[in-house]
Design a binder for these strands. Structure first.
Lengths: 336, 336
DNA sequence: TTGTAGGCGTTATCAT
DNA sequence: ATGATAACGCCTACAA
């Protein structure tokens, strides 16, 4: 069923059929009605390939998600989906591994699919520095700040990860904790990991309290299991501690379990604070104290910016979404 | 940069360039070398639209995921991605809401994208009954059994949900529990919910123990919060119980938290068993007792079947993946 | 308002 | 082994 068939069926020419189908103004009411009904009856669906081949572009927006298992990205995607569904655009989602180069992938997909815009869910500024110059369409980086990168077609919406992380550590310090250990995420490939680490360093520095990474810090990939193992490893260093800052809620969950397995109760013996604000946290025992990123808000703003740039050709924008310290139940004051 | 440009650049014709690029046999070694180098140098990327317009099909496999927030699907997707990446096919992932009609969506996408095969991650047999006849390409339904549907182009890989559910309830019964409440998933739109409910009924019936849904059963959507609320609602019925079967781990997590909030300890006062086998369960306090579906294995088999059917035109297959009862720590014997 | 025709980048069928 | 050329389904000047 092509527009040619439709043309024969209705007696109009392919040109008229095409125009009617695409809602062009220069079609008589009658022709339009006849054609649309015929299309509906015969279950006609336009051939996207032909359409895009001709138009050289699609109404396509690409979402490149770095890490299929990241629940925050899942939450964002739900928002993005529904927002784009209400727009004249189509969304296509592409997953890559957390270690992969999202910009490289984007370049490839741009050639293949000619999207109008890109949403990056997660990313590393290094990859952008190296390859984003090859991308000429508007893009928005979500969860990371792209201001410093200075690309005129790259916007960003992010949480101030460093500040959020700093806030978490300061909370522990405010509670009187001094023997604090940190479970960090990978710094190599992710700005988030790096910035959270920096925020942590700032927190200690700001209070004039020494921070010795070699004893107090342990890096791991984002998973329950690695959080668990990191906590055990820190315990095995035999430097007693009274508080843990896990630079991701999943790490915190693993850490709490590890502490329990070593007979330590949270928060009685050890306080634990995470960061991210997974919905799960509120249903754990104890409820996880954490710093919540407003991911749904980030997603919403990201889509808004992209659509706005697409339609009004405005300049790139960089927004920061505020975070919230959630009290939870996994924090207690240090014993005097 | 098109093959036409490449043709001019190398002095060969577009036909030869096309054949060289696609590894056809009837191209001289020299021509091939020249053309491939030119392509690499100029960063040529084939235009998928043109290719597919001509070929009438893509090497595309479509994954239709029903529920972007379902962690199990995320786990399956990782497996599927990597398996398909090693095959000559491309994967495209499409998300729909848990309530949407996946088959209807598939029909639409078939017209738009002409995929070679479809993987359904989750689905409802009702939708298949009503609309799958419109789909003529091979498909595999994951997590649900499609044997009864009798479509010659629809395979399936699933866990025996009814039996798994029955096993969970029997475990509670074996521990001496008689006052059991059930938190169910939606039965309306999902076979899984329905079958797990049936398995539960069978368990009671098989032991000759009465089951009164109006007092012991409460339905909810899959989320921590709804599990939490369902448990509170059951507590408020003032029919004391000693055990909870939550028909999804997320519901179990919410239930445990609700029990705690009412001063009940798990498993001392109330035992809790879930079903699904989320990685999270092993890091909760207490570790969640549950029945694990081998989702990664399901994904692996699903892809295997699809590729096999695609290449060897074999008949539809229906496989059942065994489940495992994970002991966890949220179960205790009923007090005498 | 409608029809005609050229072309988007490819592949495939012919000849050569 | 290579080259010319006709599709694939659609859009869009341009003509009528």
């Amino acid at each position: 069923m092509t527009i040619k068939d439709l043309a024969e069926k209705t007696g109009y020419s392919v040109g008229t059929v095409s125009r009617a189908l695409n809602g062009m103004p220069d079609v008589s009411k009658k022709a339009r009605a006849v054609i649309l009904r015929a299309a509906a009856e015969s279950g006609y669906e336009p051939n996207l390939n032909a359409k895009q081949l001709k138009q050289q572009h699609s109404a396509l927006i690409l979402a490149i998600v770095r890490g299929a298992r990241n629940e925050l990205f899942g939450m964002m995607l739900v928002v993005i989906q529904s927002l784009i569904a209400q727009s004249p655009y189509r969304l296509e989602t592409d997953y890559i591994d957390e270690e992969e180069d999202e910009v490289h992938r984007a370049v490839q997909l741009c050639r293949e699919k000619k999207p109008l815009g890109i949403l990056f869910l997660g990313g590393s500024s290094r990859n952008f520095q190296e390859g984003f110059e090859n991308i000429r369409i508007p893009a928005v980086l979500l969860t990371n700040d792209a201001r410093e990168l200075g690309f005129s077609n790259l916007s960003s919406v992010s949480t101030d990860d460093a500040l959020a992380s700093q806030t978490a550590v300061e909370r522990l310090l405010d509670l009187g904790h001094r023997d604090i250990v940190i479970i960090g995420g990978p710094r190599e490939n992710s700005d988030t990991g790096r910035q959270r680490y920096e925020g942590c360093v700032s927190a200690f520095a700001g209070r004039g309290i020494p921070f010795h990474p070699e004893q107090q810090y342990r890096e791991s990939r984002y998973s329950y299991r690695e959080g668990y193992q990191a906590a055990l490893a820190l315990l095995d260093r035999n430097q007693p501690f009274t508080a843990v800052f896990a630079m991701a809620d999943v790490l915190a969950v693993g850490a709490v379990r590890a502490l329990r397995d070593r007979g330590l109760k949270v928060p009685r013996d050890v306080s634990v604070i995470g960061i991210d604000g997974l919905p799960l946290g509120d249903f754990l025992c104890p409820r996880l104290s954490t710093v919540r990123q407003e991911v749904e808000e980030m997603a919403r703003r990201g889509v808004t910016i992209l659509l706005d740039v697409l339609e009004n050709h405005g300049p790139a924008r960089h927004e920061t979404v505020p975070f919230t310290l959630l009290p939870g139940e996994s924090l207690a004051a240090a014993k005097p």
